[in-house]
Structures are given as C-alpha cells and as structure tokens.
C-alpha cells in the first residue's frame, strides 16, 4: 500500500477523456532548436531529484543483489555473483511468501474489479443516495493505510469486535480471531485490501461507463436485449481497455503492497499473510542481509514484469482478433 498511497491518483480532472497533447503538438509543430532547448530546460529540474532519489537507488539496488552486503557496524562486502539467487531458489520461506503474494494480489485484484464494477453500475443507474455512496466510496482511498489497518483490527477483534457479534447474532461461530487464525487470516486481509482498493476501480469504471454513448444501449434495448445481454454485448466490450489497464495496475499495486498488511498482521500468523514485500523488508531490516534482500527484490520485479507482459500480450491478441 505504501507505493500505492504515493502513486495512486486522487483526481482525474485534467484528462477529460481527450488524448493529451495532440492539439498542442500539432499547432506548435515544427519547433525549432531553441524550443527544444527550452523544453529541456523546463524538464531538467524534475529530472534531478528523480535521477538522484529513484533511478540511482534502483541501479544500486540491482548491484546490491550481487553482493553479500549486510547492515552492520563495519560494512564489508564482497561481490558474490549469482550466489544470492542460487540461495533464493532453495529458500522455501521465500517461495511460500511468493505464493501468498500471488494469491493475495490475484484475489484482491479480481474482487476489486467485480465489486467496483457492481458499484459503478449502481452509481451509473438512476438511484437515490448517490451523493452519500460517492463520498463513502472515496473515503477508503483517502485514509492513511495505517488508520485503515487499525480500524479493521478492531472490526476483526474477538474482544468487543462487531464481526463476531454479528455472526453470533446469526447463530454462527462467534469466537474467531480473524487476523490470527490460520484459515481466516489471508481471506481477512484480502477483504481489507478490497475495501481500500475498490474506490479507485469504481471511479475509473464509472468514468468509462459514462463515456459509452447512450444510443448503443438504446439500440440494444430496441433489439430486445435484456439487461444482462446489454451488459455483456455493449457495456463490457466498451469497457475492455479500461478493465485491462486497471487490472494490470491494480495487480502490480497489490503485489507491491506493504503497509496495510504490515500493520494488520505483520505477516502472521505463522507466515500465512507474509507478502513478499514484508518478507523482503524483514530480510533487510531484521536479518540485516541487504544484499540477499535486494536479490529478492530483483526476482520479484522480474516475475511481475513477465507476468504483466504476458497478460497485456494476451489482451492485445484478443483485441486484434475481435
């Protein structure tokens, strides 16, 4: 959630659905060398911090992965080549955590999409209570992840927690320690992940829905298509590009998530919610093996990029075939 709290956009006011830059570029076409110099001068100030504080660290991070560097008083390290990666292959804890990370990222992303789609359709329909729902739908997005986690800890608590009380009221088992029980911990954090991530998906899908020309749906209605048919034949295909992009971004954000689960469970119980980012963090700042941790980071990034490329490629192919 950390990265995402920094990178998730709040407002979408500027886009207006228009492809940015077109008209400007056209009318200022044929810019001379002077113009180009001016452009570069304008951009340089934002390049400096980026080079210093994100590109350089990224490169150093990759280099670190090939060393046995540790966070100790007298840091002496050697280049060890691929040793970290070889060790990683045999590290069962890491791959367990990797698997948990995939389960987490996939389920949160899919549920976000389904729940967000449902809410977006409701918000797009002609209903009352829209204002309240809109505000409620945005709050999870705005809240600090730490506060979200504290709040859900209280909801899930077996002491004076409302969830167990509600279950008890329905005659169901009411003594579950949701975040500490082996079978419920991961589903419980997934629900919180969905709660946090749903707003953005909803807003994006809603924007997409509002861009679908009303005539399309009307034409389908005249042809006798029912609501479900209209949804699959008109709405879904129109939303396809948005769904693809929001799904890929959500997947990466969720896979890179840290803060929410760190505060909810710290990876427990018994490592059942040990997301790969938590695992890597602990390797670096608890076990102090920063070289090894960097190797984990590299592996995670490579795998995510590969998965994403495969997904985007398949979407691209499907698009072409249609």
């Amino acid at each position: 959630m950390t990265a995402t709290s920094l990178t998730r956009p709040a407002s979408t006011g500027g886009g207006r659905g228009r492809r940015p830059g077109r008209s400007g570029a056209r009318s200022m076409g044929g810019v001379g060398r002077a113009k180009r110099r001016e452009a570069i001068a304008l951009v340089v100030p934002s390049l400096l911090p980026v080079l210093l504080l994100s590109v350089a660290p990224l490169l150093v991070g990759v280099l670190l992965a090939f060393t046995d560097a540790r966070l100790v008083r007298r840091p002496e390290y050697e280049v060890v080549g691929l040793e970290n990666f070889q060790r990683l292959l045999d590290n069962g804890f890491f791959w367990d955590s990797f698997r948990i990370g995939m389960v987490w990222a996939v389920s949160v992303t899919v549920l976000q999409l389904l729940a967000g789609m449902g809410l977006a359709l409701l918000l797009n329909a002609d209903l009352r209570l829209q204002g309240l729902t809109r505000v409620l739908a945005l709050i999870p997005w705005a809240m600090p992840p730490v506060v979200v986690a504290i709040m859900w800890r209280m909801i899930y608590s077996p002491n004076a927690g409302p969830l167990n009380a509600a279950l008890g009221g329905l005659g169901l088992p009411d003594d579950i320690n949701w975040l500490a029980d082996f079978s419920t911990a991961l589903p419980a954090v997934v629900v919180v992940g969905v709660w946090v991530g749903m707003p953005q998906t909803t807003v994006t899908l809603l924007a997409g829905l509002q861009q679908i020309p009303g005539e399309l749906n009307e034409a389908a209605s005249v042809d006798g298509a029912n609501a479900w048919r209209r949804f699959t034949a008109v709405t879904l295909p129109s939303l396809r590009p948005i769904v693809t992009s929001i799904t890929s971004l959500n997947f990466i954000w969720n896979f890179n998530s840290f803060s929410l689960v760190y505060v909810l469970t710290e990876g427990g119980p018994g490592g059942k919610t040990m997301l790969p980012m938590l695992f890597t963090y602990l390797e670096a700042f608890k076990n102090r093996n920063i070289g090894y941790a960097a190797a984990m980071g590299v592996v995670l990034v490579v795998v995510v990029v590969l998965l994403l490329s495969a997904y985007l490629w398949s979407q691209f192919r499907a698009e072409k075939e249609r």
């Binding site: 804890f93 082996f182 427990g268 119980p269 018994g270 490592g271 602990l282 608890k286 076990n287």
Partner: peptide
C-alpha cells in the same frame, strides 16, 4: 525467534 520459532510454534 522471529523468522523460524514463532511461526513454527504457531503452526
């Protein structure tokens, strides 16, 4: 304690 024993005892 943190990375091995606690998860193992919990399991």
């Amino acid at each position: 304690k943190d990375t091995v024993a606690t998860p193992a005892f919990q399991r």
